[in-house]
C-alpha cells in the first residue's frame, strides 16, 4: 500500500479518495432526498384522520325561568 503514498502518485491517490468521498456523499443525499419525497407523497395521499369533535358549549339559566339552552359554538362540520 505504500506505493500509493509515493510522491509521484500521491496526488492521484488524494484525488481518488476525495472523489470517492464526494460520490458517497452524493449517493447518500440522493437516497435521503428520494425517501423524504416518497414519505411526503404517502402522507399527502393518506386519507385525513377523523377530525376531533369541536367543543360545544351551552348556556342555561338556572334558578329562574326555564329557558331554551343557547348554543354558542356551532358543531364542527364533518
Amino acid at each position: 500500500m505504500n506505493f500509493l503514498l509515493d510522491p509521484a502518485i500521491a496526488l492521484y491517490t488524494a484525488l481518488a479518495v476525495a472523489l470517492s468521498v464526494w460520490i458517497g456523499v452524493f449517493i447518500f443525499l440522493w437516497r435521503v432526498d428520494s425517501a423524504a419525497r416518497e414519505l411526503r407523497r404517502r402522507l399527502d395521499d393518506e386519507s385525513p384522520a377523523r377530525p376531533a369533535a369541536a367543543p360545544r358549549a351551552t348556556l342555561e339559566v338556572r334558578g329562574g325561568r326555564t329557558q331554551q339552552p343557547v348554543s354558542i359554538t356551532e358543531p364542527k362540520a364533518e
Partner: peptide, 16 residues
C-alpha cells in the same frame, strides 16, 4: 441535483 453532483466532481478533479 444531478448537475450539481457532476459539477462538484469536476471541482474535485480540477482541485488536484
Amino acid at each position: 441535483k444531478l448537475l450539481l453532483g457532476v459539477w462538484m466532481a469536476g471541482i474535485v478533479v480540477a482541485m488536484f
